[in-house]
Design a protein around this nucleic acid. Structure first.
Lengths: 229, 229
DNA sequence: ATTACTACTAAACGAGTAC
DNA sequence: TGTACTCGTTTAGTAGTAA
């Protein structure tokens, strides 16, 4: 979520805000800040210099202390952290969960469904990519993964509307943005055909995942699934 | 606000929450967490061990990764940070401001007012301490301090109700909890007598501040004034 | 008073590796 | 695979002090 060297800066920013540097200028000596943060005066001085260089604060050094005001960029950082926390603390479901499953070859129906123009248009519009005509089937085995899959079902999803043509009816498809193997962006869709049951999920992506990630049947694949904000 | 070694732990906790460890158990490998946080696998492992020791998370190591669940204590930390940030981001005024003034000797009226039983009872009830019968007068001089004092006037204050006896009327007194010289807890009250004007504030505390802090006329005193939540 | 540089110390980090 | 130990390296932190 944040570059690791920025952690300390973010904390300094919070401390400064608590000392009144948030939408006004506050006179804060490095010694005072240091005591508040449990660090040395020298380190506090360095932090302030770094925050100024990063454009997070405005700083004017005077013989009686430093005049500090948190800038737009710094305020944006506070807002960002606040927004993340609000979601974490208040939401009933997590921002993401991970699933792991084993690759297996299906009956090749995935391509048939995905390629349906009415579905395809919605994938492009709602997921932001044109799916490769085929799905990667993943069999979930561990209790943990099955449990997670069940939970996921209760979270809000992107809904791809169904339709009917002269021959038959195509149902609603629920999907979630996902990252496959922590590398490729795509989406998880609940098994399009009910006979797979709850232990199978399918993955779609802009390109052929088997080729892109060099996957064969039996390989374990890790998927990070994102819920909707 | 937080012990400095806990900063990184808090961040790890946020990351874990984003990975779904917030009110449920998530399977998170140290390698995966490391990549998310931009640190090494070894460091991620160490962080998890430290978080477990701190009682912030429950951790079960399995051959496929660690099962992580944020515990009550960890959740409390997230809540605490969230609450601080919410106040900072949403409040129209800062949690505290600092003022600096020069000690001077008044006409000794402070003691007269403070000792009035009707006032005194309210100080005890609303500030939580029995004030030493006397005030420390501080003359504000710098533009910064005068400006800050003006701002303070607009923030909500603890109100000490006035009263009248057979001879005269005693007005409403507005005050704020404060820390004097970053050591002693007391309160700032706006000058009880109008003839001092806006450039003077008075400080009360459980004990005599002149003695306790060895203050003489002309000494500079720094006061951290807390606004109300 | 302050701030902040330089030189040093302490702590955190990560590579290698055992399990 | 995974986790987590040891240990050398890097980085962060502080003391002393100049400005």
């Amino acid at each position: 979520m944040t570059g690791k060297s920025e952690w300390r800066h973010l904390y300094t920013l919070i401390e400064l805000a608590e000392l009144g540097a948030h939408k006004r200028t506050a006179k804060i000596s490095t010694e005072f800040l240091a005591e508040k943060m449990g660090i040395s005066q020298q380190t506090a001085s360095r932090y302030l210099i770094e925050l100024e260089r990063a454009g997070w604060i405005q700083r004017t050094v005077t013989p009686e202390g430093s005049l500090i005001k948190i800038e737009r960029a710094g305020d944006a950082e506070l807002q960002r952290l606040y927004a993340s926390l609000r979601f974490l603390v208040e939401a009933a479901y997590p921002p993401s969960v991970t699933l792991e499953g084993t690759v297996f070859t299906g009956l090749g129906e995935g391509a048939y469904y995905i390629a349906k123009e009415y579905y395809r248009k919605q994938f492009i519009e709602k997921l932001g990519f044109d799916p490769y005509p085929g799905t990667l089937n993943l069999k979930l085995t561990s209790d943990y993964d099955l449990k997670t899959r069940m939970e996921l079902e209760a979270y809000p999803a992107i809904e791809i509307q169904g339709f009917k043509n002269e021959n038959r009816t195509f149902g609603l498809v629920k999907c979630y943005p996902a990252t496959i193997e922590n590398k490729v962006k795509g989406a998880l869709i609940f098994a399009l055909r009910s006979h797979y049951g709850a232990s199978v999920v399918e993955i779609i992506a802009p390109a052929c995942l088997r080729k892109q990630l060099n996957l064969k049947d039996g390989h374990k694949v890790k998927v990070e699934v994102f819920t909707l904000p």
